[in-house]
Amino acid sequence: MYLYFGKQMKKRSSPYALTFVINFLLWLLLTATFAIDELISGVIISIIVSLITAPKMKILNGLNIHFGFLFGLLKYLAYFFYALIKANFDLAKRVLSLDMKIHPGMVEIKTTMQSDLGKLFLANSITLTPGTLTVDVYDNRMLVHWIDVPEHLDIEATTKAIVSKFEDYLKEFVK
């Protein structure tokens, strides 16, 4: 029993340090000062909050922290904003055109993301990119509503068209 418990703990330990770092960054951003008394109270409050909340933040274990973590995150964000702006111009064109060139339909895609956090990021990215909206997530399938479904597509081609580029970027910083 003890061994089993120990294994479980090793496998998915609560991310206390990570929660503390995120809390403290949030505190810095919200107070927007570097005064020493603010910093001290921020550290104390972050420790208390992370002690309480870290056991419930196991989703953060999906983060793959290594040397190129921040670089990967920035690259992903750059591509994400590019896709978001492209999506909006695409949508504006569709909304303003007189004969609404839409062929909506539901498609299914496969994902290779392992962790819940990776799936969350991927679903959010799909929702905010051109013409697609995540409806449901199963184990490694996602149901996606696509505003302009091309004819004769199987699941592989759909996956390639919608998610594979995002997955490449995401895999640099989440599992």
């Binding site: 978001l84 999506a87 949508l91 909506p104 929702t127 697609t132 909206l133 509503h145």
Partner: peptide
């Protein structure tokens, strides 16, 4: 579904 798509994307940007 299409309405939610437009609502989410355009309003987010």
């Amino acid at each position: 579904y299409n309405r939610i798509q437009v609502g989410t994307k355009a309003v987010t940007l």
